[in-house]
Design a protein around this nucleic acid. Structure first.
Ligand SMILES: [Mn+2]
Ligand SMILES: [Mn+2]
Ligand SMILES: [Zn+2]
Ligand SMILES: [Zn+2]
Lengths: 128, 128
DNA sequence: AAAATAATAGTAATGATTACTATTACTGAA
DNA sequence: TTCAGTAATAGTAATCATTACTATTATTTT
């Protein structure tokens, strides 16, 4: 993977913020450094950087757009139901989701979504 | 809310299955009873039924399409990473997510996503 | 029955993401 | 230092699930 000027700046801009910007938000800030970059390049590089494990791609249920995160260590998020803002939500491995009542990051916690992923019986059987 | 023929059949078809069909899958099965129904009507009624609390609308991170569920009581789901199939995943309120290692529904559990929602400090301040 | 209202079928628009393509930039031998 | 091979880019078009629009039809109320 070549670290092109475009790729470098996209990564730097993402690392600058504690937000979890969309591709388009990132496109806007990268454009201040590279006015001729295209949105497609931003998408492609975010995908490649995520693939390489240098950033994380976040897709929330209910929200239409993907978000990107420079923090790759495992953590959860909390989304404001009013404005859509997304903040980090550090997990305590000893707590179950019901027990997070304290207002982390100043948020009022209203609820959570928990979904699992895995391999179904049929797909397990197929490839072993 | 009028219980039209279309709305009734959409609800019935959803209740017939333990799957978590997309709007289009439902559209296909409803069409066997009402060949002239439009996809827009299916979407609109699913929205209205969800609003009324008669069904649940599910939106998973990573999956592009919304899913619908006739079971309205609180439960989680597990998605097969290979084929996209979605099954119910009953939650034990005393367990934290890490502890679901046993293969529920015959699934091999690979991981989970946990996201919270609430109101951020700014939005809390705004409307009280 | 007439008027008011709700819902529908069919179609168009939306919008985020992905795909395509001709051009440009980098790389690493000869 | 060429020069071929490859990777990446800018710009644009396509995709596709969902939503919006609109003229018509169905149901309820008066
Ligand atoms: Mn984060
Ligand atoms: Mn379910
Ligand atoms: Zn907010
Ligand atoms: Zn499967």
């Amino acid at each position: 993977m070549r670290m092109t000027r475009q790729r470098r700046i996209i990564l730097d801009e993402l690392r600058k913020t504690k937000d979890h910007p969309t591709a388009d938000m990132l496109y806007q800030s990268v454009r201040r450094h590279l006015p001729r970059i295209s949105l497609g390049t931003v998408y492609r590089n975010l995908e490649i950087l995520a693939e390489a494990g240098m950033i994380r791609k976040l897709e929330f249920g209910g929200a239409s757009r993907m978000r990107f995160d420079a923090t790759v260590s495992r953590h959860s998020h909390i989304r404001c139901v009013a404005c859509g803002r997304i903040d980090d939500f550090p997990l305590d491995p000893d707590l179950n989701p019901e027990e997070y009542t304290a207002g982390i990051n100043g948020y009022e916690v209203l609820g959570y979504n928990l979904e699992f992923y895995g391999r179904c019986p049929a797909c397990k059987a197929k490839v072993k």
